[in-house]
Amino acid sequence: MAIEVNGKTIETDEEGYLVNLNEWNEDAAKILAAQDDLELTESHWEVINFLREYYDEYQIAPAVRVLTKAIGKKLGPEKGNSKYLYELFPYGPAKQACRFAGLPKPTGCV
């Protein structure tokens, strides 16, 4: 599978995760979100950018509990809860947000 981003083909696996993380850009994220009928807002970008920083630091995509806790620490308790994150990413905050962020599927996610 693949997505078309600015005339460039970016390979994705069968679940829509990017095969090559270095090919990610904001336009790719918008296209992946559009596939899920979502338009990315500033709140989405906060989580996406947080995930990308987390991945750079730890070389792993966080599972949802870790994500929720870490977001709470960085962005405040009103954002560090699963209700808020599920409103942004209805298909699962860790799984869906990591896909939009161009990261591999988080461990512990089915």
Score class of each variant (00 low, 15 high):
residue 39 E to W: 06
residue 76 G to M: 02
residue 61 A to I: 10
residue 37 D to E: 13
residue 23 E to H: 10
residue 21 L to K: 13
residue 28 A to V: 14
residue 55 Y to Q: 01
residue 35 Q to M: 14
residue 29 A to V: 11
residue 25 N to Y: 06
residue 48 I to D: 08
residue 65 R to Q: 14
residue 68 T to W: 05
residue 56 D to V: 10
residue 52 R to Q: 07
residue 53 E to V: 05
residue 43 S to Q: 15
residue 27 D to V: 13
residue 51 L to M: 10
residue 81 N to G: 06
residue 36 D to W: 06
residue 30 K to D: 15
residue 43 S to L: 04
residue 44 H to Y: 01
residue 20 N to V: 12
residue 30 K to C: 15
residue 45 W to M: 05
residue 26 E to D: 10
residue 81 N to M: 07
residue 42 E to R: 05
residue 39 E to S: 13
residue 48 I to E: 03
residue 45 W to G: 08
residue 69 K to P: 05
residue 19 V to T: 14
residue 30 K to P: 12
residue 28 A to D: 14
residue 32 L to V: 12
residue 35 Q to W: 14
residue 56 D to R: 06
residue 63 A to H: 13
residue 71 I to V: 07
residue 34 A to M: 11
residue 54 Y to D: 00
residue 19 V to I: 15
residue 67 L to E: 00
residue 71 I to W: 03
residue 24 W to N: 11
residue 62 P to S: 01
residue 25 N to S: 09
residue 22 N to C: 11
residue 79 K to S: 00
residue 60 I to N: 05
residue 22 N to H: 12
residue 77 P to Y: 07
residue 57 E to D: 07
residue 54 Y to V: 04
residue 25 N to V: 09
residue 20 N to L: 11
residue 67 L to Y: 01
residue 43 S to E: 15
residue 76 G to I: 02
residue 47 V to K: 03
residue 61 A to G: 11
residue 62 P to G: 03
residue 58 Y to N: 14
residue 72 G to A: 07
residue 53 E to I: 11
residue 25 N to T: 09
residue 63 A to G: 12
residue 44 H to N: 05
residue 71 I to N: 04
residue 78 E to D: 03
residue 72 G to Q: 02
residue 24 W to E: 15
residue 19 V to A: 14
residue 60 I to A: 14
residue 50 F to K: 14
residue 46 E to H: 04
residue 48 I to W: 11
residue 37 D to C: 00
residue 69 K to V: 09
